[in-house]
Computed example of a mutant assay.
Amino acid sequence: MCGRFTQSQSGESVAQAFQLKAVPNLQPRYNIAPTQPVSAILATPDSPEPRYQLLRWGLIPSWAKDSSIGSRLINARSETVAEKPSFRAAFKRRRCLIVADGFYEWKSDPNSKAKQPYYFRLKEHAPFAFAGLWEQWTDPQSGSELDTCTILTTAANAVLEPVHDRMPVILEPDQYAAWLDPDFYDPKDLQTMLDPYRAEGMESYPVSKAVNSPRNDAAECLEPVEV
């Protein structure tokens, strides 16, 4: 799964990585948690040029009666995303890129009730994209609209396996265009993008338990610790 991640890159770095015409105004985020706003790249039929947009993390399907379901839909399993009622419509036409530069996962300790957090990132420390889905939900009471998203997950690669059996789907740059294209839908081709990221391109290390609280959103969350 993916329950916390980081996006500490500059707006210029993100614009370059995702070939955006406009440079987004970004503040470093070191402990992004569910229901918070996240940086995303979208493309729609009426606006096919990839653009930056903030989405709330936790997908609310268009048919939902209230927003509470969003906190339970922060992740979507890639193996079943095409069939699940909560995700299948978005998988067809509303795929997005979730901008990140690392994420956290927790390892169980048989000698302690406390889990040890680990940080995972690309070896080049560059921004990257989680495979995401997005939806626009209209509140039936107020009529207000809310744009939300979820992050797809897959089986863990060799870097993740010692800590957790799942990991977020990290896309390669040459997959961005097809993933974003709302007019493209070939389930078999899309599924080939959802394999675990190549282990040789990633690294990890244990970090402070300060990351356990979403109130802590500072660079100290990334500091290595000894275990």
Rank of each mutant, 00 (worst) to 15 (best):
L122G: 03
I98A: 09
R93A: 15
P110M: 14
R88E: 00
I98S: 05
R94M: 13
A155H: 10
K92H: 10
A155Q: 14
P110Q: 14
P162S: 05
R166L: 10
R121A: 15
I151V: 13
W137C: 04
V81N: 01
Y119A: 06
K107D: 00
A82I: 01
V81T: 09
T138C: 10
A156F: 08
L97Y: 02
P110V: 11
K115M: 13
L152N: 07
A131L: 03
V169P: 01
T153S: 14
S144A: 15
F120S: 08
N75G: 03
C149T: 14
R166G: 00
K84L: 09
R95P: 11
A155W: 04
Y104A: 09
L97R: 08
N111T: 08
P162I: 00
R72L: 11
I74D: 08
R94F: 11
N157H: 04
V169W: 08
T153G: 08
V169T: 03
Y104G: 05
R121V: 06
V81M: 14
E135W: 02
R77Q: 09
T148C: 12
W137F: 09
Q136K: 14
H125K: 15
W106C: 00
L152D: 02
Y104Q: 02
S71C: 05
F103Q: 00
A89K: 09
K123S: 11
P110Y: 13
I170F: 07
H125W: 09
V169C: 03
K92L: 10
T154K: 07
